[in-house]
Every structure is written in C-alpha cells, then in structure tokens.
Amino acid sequence: MTLKPVSVRPLTSLDGEPWSRLRQALWPDQPADAHLVEIEEMLGGQGAVGYGYGAFDPEGELVAFAEVSIRAYANGCTSTPVPFLEGIFVEERSRRTGVAGQLLAQIESDLRNRGFVELCSDAEMHNTSSHLAHRQWGFVETERVIYFRKPLGT
C-alpha cells in the first residue's frame, strides 16, 4: 500500500456538496437532497450529535469522509455515552492507500482529547469486506445480532 498524501479535517457547511456526493455513493437508497438536509442538521446541532470528517487530496478535493455520532449506548461497548462510526467511504481511486486509516487516526485523536475511551462501529452481516477493513483499522468484533420484525396486523 502506498500512503496517499491527504489532509484530514472536520467537515463544514462549505463542504456540503462534495460531502453529499460521497454520502450518496455510500447510501444510494436515500434521495440526494435528503443527504444535504442531514448534513445541515448535523452541522446545526439538530438531532443526534454528529461530526463529519473529510480527507482531501493535494488539490483540495474531498476523496473520503467519515461520520461519527455520540450514542447513549452501543452494543458491545463498555462506556456511555459512546462515539459510533456511522459511516466511512473512500472514493474508488483512493482506496487501499491508507486514506481511511488517516481519517480514523484523526477521529480517534479528537475523541481521546474529548475524554472518550473507545470508538464503536457496525457492519451488516453480509459485508465481509467491511469486517476485514474494521479489523485492519484495529476494531475488535464484540457480538453478532440478527434483528427480527413482526408486523402487528389490525
């Protein structure tokens, strides 16, 4: 792996459009305009407390992002409240170059400075590439859960 030179910083409202574009690539089932609304809510402190971080290439283009929320509780965690990695995405051309690791290093540093002792995350059962990535980033699997739903007819 060749480390890609990027700069990492918290995202701001000035990053809304490129951030929204990368969110759309990660979460395509959500309408594009809904991503912008969620970004505005996150930056405005509405709803769940959340933070966005971006990795920028030498030309200043956003090539990756990660979002962290502060949850009251997360399965497998030992502290509360707990920071939770809600999503992380690296553009195809920047993958396998250490960009995600650089994003996480900055996030972890900021969280430690705020007094947090752990960072939690999740991945869908079938997403084995995400499982591998999490292990490479230093995450340890804590449990597996399958959720069920039963409609309550009238």
Rank of each mutant, 00 (worst) to 15 (best):
D110N: 05
D57A: 10
S79E: 09
L62V: 02
P151N: 07
D110A: 08
T128R: 13
G54I: 01
P151W: 05
A32W: 09
G98W: 01
E61Y: 15
V63A: 06
D33H: 10
I88S: 00
L26R: 04
P58E: 00
P31Y: 13
L104K: 00
R96Q: 12
P151Y: 07
N113M: 09
C77T: 08
E40C: 05
E86M: 01
N113L: 12
A32T: 09
R95E: 07
E124D: 09
S121Y: 02
G138H: 09
L22E: 07
E61M: 15
S129C: 07
G101D: 00
V68H: 00
V68F: 01
K150I: 07
E108V: 08
P18K: 15
V140C: 11
D122F: 08
S129T: 07
D29Y: 10
S109R: 03
A100R: 00
L104T: 00
L104H: 01
V6G: 02
R23D: 04
R112M: 12
E92K: 06
E59L: 13
I146D: 04
E38I: 03
D33C: 12
R144D: 01
D15L: 10
R149P: 02
H35P: 04
R149S: 14
W27H: 06
V82W: 00
T78Y: 07
E143P: 04
P10S: 15
A32Y: 10
P58S: 03
L26K: 06
Q106F: 05
I146R: 15
F148Y: 15
N127R: 13
G52Q: 02
E141S: 15
L43H: 15
A55L: 06
N127V: 10
L26Y: 10
W137V: 05
L36E: 14
P5L: 03
M42W: 02
P31D: 14
H35A: 11
H131Q: 09
P10K: 15
Q106G: 04
G138E: 01
G16R: 13
N127L: 05
G52N: 01
P151S: 06
A66L: 08
S109Q: 07
D122K: 14
H126I: 07
F56V: 02
V8Q: 03
E41D: 10
A72M: 09
R96C: 11
L119K: 00
L132A: 14
A72S: 10
N75G: 06
R149N: 11
P83A: 11
R114K: 10
E41Y: 03
E17R: 13
G138F: 09
T142W: 05
T80H: 03
M125G: 04
S130R: 06
A25H: 10
P5A: 03
N127M: 08
S7K: 14
Q106M: 06
